[in-house]
Write a protein that binds this DNA or RNA. Sequence first.
DNA 1: ACCATATATATGAAGAACAATATATACGCC
DNA 2: GGCGTATATATTGTTCTTCATATATATGGT
Lengths: 101, 101
Amino acid sequence: MDAVFSALADPRRRRMVAVLRHGETSAGDIERALDADQPSTSRHLRVLRDAGLVRVRKAAQRRLYSLVPARLAELDAWLGDYRHFWTSKLDALELHLNQET
Amino acid sequence: MDAVFSALADPRRRRMVAVLRHGETSAGDIERALDADQPSTSRHLRVLRDAGLVRVRKAAQRRLYSLVPARLAELDAWLGDYRHFWTSKLDALELHLNQET
DNA sequence: ACCATATATATGAAGAACAATATATACGCC
DNA sequence: GGCGTATATATTGTTCTTCATATATATGGT
């Protein structure tokens, strides 16, 4: 879970994840989509991979990346424990009080 | 959003958030709940505060911390864009396949 | 009311551990 | 050999930890 959160803490990596939302994408296409340099792209993809957020598949010289739903589902499960905080009426009031502070 | 993710990347800070799920808690009580030293606790609370995940209220010498639902709701909203990945049947299958890897 | 002390929390500074960036180089497949 | 991608290395920047100190409020004695 640590790795998931810290992987997503970087805006470039979140943009990568956003790109992957549209389906399997090659490292090169991700690189171009983000207009980043190649080694840095590769390194960031590695962080996402190590966090289990993406998986990679070889296709000749290309590496095709895609999202791993399970990891995002875990994050969702974690958040689930807190969801009542902003969904319940009682806490909607609390939310309102916060805004005044 | 960066700050939210990186604040939650630390397990101690996630435990703090978990403690705060039960309601407003003083810095000292959080410190004891986590069995951590005082300065470190204070600093971690600051990170959570800077990320907007908690707010603080003064009561004499005590500082009473509580969760800010809005920030967690933002996280939930971000996740929302991806939710269909693991809720659809097609991707439930995919989730299953990942677990074998 | 004044002073000393206690309690609760925050901040400063120094060092270790960790992460990011850039440049260069290596690997594997066609 | 050329292409797509990954890794090594050096450097710089961030974050965490610890010890020491600072600030604010409360309490008790005189």
